[in-house]
Deep mutational scan, measured.
Amino acid sequence: TSIVNVSSSLNVRSSASTSSKVIGSLSGNTKVTIVGEEGAFYKIEYKGSHGYVAKEYI
């Protein structure tokens, strides 16, 4: 489990790309479970499925 480190919110994306669809967002200090990594993104558990967040904010 890791913590989201942002002051406002962090986009959760459908794939490991800044141009991919935003499927949701997480607020600062939210706990997330990392299940993998791809480039500059972590794959996380998100709403019963998976999403991707930028590593620099975790």
Rank of each mutant, 00 (worst) to 15 (best):
T1Y: 07
T1E: 12
T1A: 13
T1V: 14
S2G: 15
S2V: 15
S2P: 09
S2D: 08
S2I: 15
S2C: 15
S2T: 14
I3W: 13
I3S: 09
I3Y: 12
I3R: 06
I3M: 12
I3L: 10
V4T: 09
V4M: 09
V4N: 08
V4A: 10
V4K: 07
V4H: 08
N5V: 14
N5I: 15
N5W: 10
N5F: 10
N5L: 14
N5M: 11
N5D: 09
N5Q: 10
V6A: 10
V6K: 08
V6F: 06
S7I: 12
S7W: 08
S7M: 11
S7N: 12
S7L: 11
S7V: 12
S7K: 09
S7E: 11
S7T: 14
S7D: 10
S7Q: 13
S8V: 14
S8W: 13
S8F: 14
S8A: 12
S8Q: 12
S9K: 13
S9A: 12
S9Q: 11
S9F: 12
S9H: 12
L10H: 06
L10S: 06
L10N: 05
L10V: 15
L10G: 06
L10T: 14
N11L: 15
N11I: 15
N11F: 13
N11Q: 15
N11W: 15
N11A: 15
N11M: 14
N11D: 15
N11H: 14
N11K: 14
N11Y: 13
N11T: 14
V12I: 08
R13E: 03
R13W: 15
R13I: 07
R13F: 15
R13K: 06
R13Q: 14
R13N: 10
R13Y: 15
S14A: 15
S14F: 12
S14I: 14
S14M: 13
S14Q: 15
S14H: 11
S14W: 08
S14P: 04
S15E: 15
S15A: 13
S15Q: 12
S15Y: 08
A16G: 05
A16M: 04
A16T: 05
A16L: 03
A16P: 14
A16S: 07
A16F: 03
A16E: 02
A16C: 05
S17W: 04
S17T: 09
S17V: 05
S17Y: 08
S17E: 07
S17I: 06
S17L: 06
T18V: 11
T18E: 14
T18C: 15
T18F: 15
T18M: 15
S19H: 11
S19Y: 09
S19Q: 11
S19T: 12
S19R: 09
S19K: 10
S19P: 05
S19N: 13
S20I: 01
S20L: 03
S20W: 04
S20V: 02
S20Q: 02
S20Y: 06
S20P: 01
S20T: 03
K21Y: 08
K21P: 15
K21D: 11
V22N: 04
V22E: 04
V22G: 02
V22D: 03
V22W: 04
V22L: 07
V22I: 15
V22Q: 04
V22T: 06
V22F: 06
I23K: 03
I23G: 00
I23S: 02
I23Y: 02
I23W: 02
I23F: 03
I23R: 02
I23V: 07
I23P: 01
I23T: 03
G24D: 03
G24C: 06
G24A: 05
G24H: 03
G24E: 02
G24Y: 06
G24R: 01
G24L: 05
S25A: 10
S25G: 06
S25M: 14
S25F: 14
L26A: 02
L26G: 00
L26R: 00
L26T: 03
L26Y: 03
L26M: 06
L26S: 02
L26W: 03
S27T: 11
S27N: 11
S27F: 09
S27E: 14
S27C: 14
S27K: 13
G28R: 13
G28N: 14
G28L: 11
G28S: 13
G28Y: 13
G28M: 13
N29S: 09
N29E: 08
N29M: 11
N29T: 08
N29V: 08
N29H: 10
N29L: 11
N29R: 07
T30S: 11
T30V: 10
T30N: 07
T30P: 04
T30I: 08
T30R: 06
T30D: 11
T30F: 09
K31M: 13
K31Q: 13
K31T: 13
K31N: 10
K31H: 11
K31E: 11
V32L: 07
V32K: 01
V32Y: 06
V32C: 05
V32R: 00
T33W: 10
T33A: 07
T33D: 06
T33F: 10
T33L: 09
T33S: 08
T33M: 09
I34M: 02
I34H: 01
I34V: 09
I34N: 01
V35A: 04
V35N: 03
G36T: 04
G36V: 03
G36H: 04
G36R: 03
G36Q: 04
G36Y: 03
G36E: 05
G36D: 06
E37M: 09
E37H: 06
E37F: 05
E37L: 06
E37I: 08
E37S: 08
E37V: 09
E37Y: 05
E38I: 07
E38V: 09
E38W: 06
E38P: 00
E38C: 12
E38H: 07
G39F: 04
G39A: 05
G39W: 04
G39V: 03
G39Q: 04
G39P: 02
G39M: 04
A40R: 08
A40Y: 07
A40H: 10
A40Q: 11
A40G: 13
A40P: 09
A40N: 13
A40W: 06
F41M: 03
F41T: 01
Y42F: 10
Y42G: 00
Y42Q: 01
Y42I: 04
K43N: 02
K43E: 04
K43W: 04
K43A: 05
K43H: 03
I44V: 06
I44Q: 00
I44C: 01
I44F: 06
I44N: 00
I44Y: 00
I44P: 00
E45P: 04
E45G: 03
E45Y: 07
E45M: 11
E45F: 09
Y46S: 00
Y46T: 01
K47N: 14
K47T: 04
K47R: 10
K47E: 11
K47Q: 12
K47D: 09
K47A: 11
G48Q: 06
G48F: 05
G48H: 06
G48L: 05
G48S: 07
G48W: 04
G48T: 06
G48M: 05
S49K: 10
S49P: 01
S49C: 09
S49F: 08
H50Y: 15
H50C: 09
H50W: 14
H50V: 13
G51C: 03
G51K: 01
G51D: 00
G51M: 02
G51L: 02
G51W: 02
G51I: 01
Y52P: 00
Y52T: 00
Y52E: 00
Y52A: 01
Y52I: 01
V53F: 02
V53N: 00
V53R: 00
V53D: 01
V53E: 00
V53Q: 00
V53G: 02
V53W: 00
V53T: 01
V53S: 01
A54H: 09
A54V: 09
A54R: 13
A54N: 11
A54Y: 12
A54Q: 14
A54I: 10
K55S: 05
K55M: 07
K55T: 03
K55H: 03
K55I: 06
K55R: 07
K55G: 02
K55A: 04
E56C: 14
E56T: 08
E56R: 11
E56P: 05
E56D: 09
E56F: 09
E56S: 08
Y57S: 12
Y57D: 15
Y57H: 14
Y57C: 15
Y57M: 10
Y57P: 05
Y57W: 09
Y57E: 15
Y57V: 08
I58E: 04
I58G: 03
I58K: 04
